[in-house]
């Protein structure tokens, strides 16, 4: 077979599969939007659910999700980023650090329901936080931790040794080099990793199922020891436990649209930052 023909065949195959993957995403989006768009309005976002969740909006679920993720990030981001910096910059490769890395990789592969069970056992029962915003966000933070940790380590590894050499040769200390050069260079990638992990966590149902989420609350949470409503759990509840599906299923799809948009809003800055840095940094 001559080369041009071969090339044509392979390109066609590649094009086909690329097209298929885009098509699947578009179908999914079309399906959700076509069913949920009719309930979307300003009221849907700023109103409380009414009449047994057959009317009104999903404000408490949106706020609950944001609270959960905000609090979870507050726990997970400092631990993940600082731990990653320590492991990457301040330890040598040995059996212990390799074991730590391996356990982190393993953690990120564990199904989220296991984190849910862990959260139930440790935060809700053992520490007595019950089903609350606190238990839920602690559980989510444990889910986010490995992703943030690995993203930090990988981003730091990408910083060329040349930069560190140049800094040391100027008489900089390890601390100055790490913070002024290495961390600043790696920051866009770290931020992207953090945002992606938040984007992933906000859609999780299993970790908050037994630890933080509830189907219905009156008003917004006033303390971290109260259970909260959350978007994925609301969707799950409306679809499985609803008593009036004709009205509740469209609300579930409407909530899905809101969730997708929130994930998009969270991940967008990460993508923008990454592209901006990619375009003006060549090394």
């Amino acid at each position: 077979m001559d080369k041009t023909k071969k090339e044509f065949i392979f390109f066609t195959i590649f094009r086909f599969f690329a097209f298929v993957s885009v098509l699947i995403v578009l179908t999914l989006l079309f399906y959700i939007f076509s069913r949920g768009l009719k309930v979307i309005s300003l009221n849907f976002i700023i109103d409380y659910p009414r009449n047994g969740f057959t009317e009104g909006g999903i404000l408490p679920s949106i706020v609950g999700s944001i609270y959960l993720l905000g609090l979870a990030s507050l726990f997970a981001v400092p631990i993940g980023v600082l731990g990653g910096i320590y492991l990457s910059e301040y330890t040598k490769e040995n059996t212990l650090t390799n074991a730590i890395r391996l356990s982190i990789d393993t953690l990120s592969g564990i199904p989220s329901i296991i984190f849910g069970l862990f959260g139930l056992a440790v935060f809700s029962k053992m520490l007595g936080f019950k089903i609350s915003l606190l238990s839920g966000s602690l559980t989510l933070s444990i889910l986010m931790l490995p992703t943030i940790f690995s993203a930090t380590i990988e981003s730091l590894k990408l910083v060329p040794k040349d930069f560190r050499d140049a800094s040391f040769a100027l008489g900089a200390t390890k601390w100055q080099t790490t913070f002024e050069i290495v961390l600043k260079t790696a920051m866009p990638n770290i931020i992207t990793g953090v945002l992606l992990s938040i984007g992933r966590a906000i859609g999780e149902t299993a970790p908050i199922l037994f630890t933080g989420a509830t189907f219905y609350t009156r008003g917004l949470p006033t303390s971290i020891f109260e259970p909260v409503m959350a978007l994925p759990y609301t969707i799950y509840g409306l679809l499985t436990e609803g008593t009036f599906p004709q009205k509740q299923v469209p609300i579930a799809f409407g909530a899905s649209i809101v969730l997708i948009l929130i994930v998009f809003i969270i991940t967008l800055p990460g993508i923008i930052i990454r592209n901006k840095y990619r375009s003006n940094k060549k090394w």
Partner: peptide
């Protein structure tokens, strides 16, 4: 001071 084989300015 030191100057290296490959130019290595900081990403600044």
């Amino acid at each position: 001071g030191m100057v290296f084989q490959r130019p290595n300015p900081f990403p600044k």
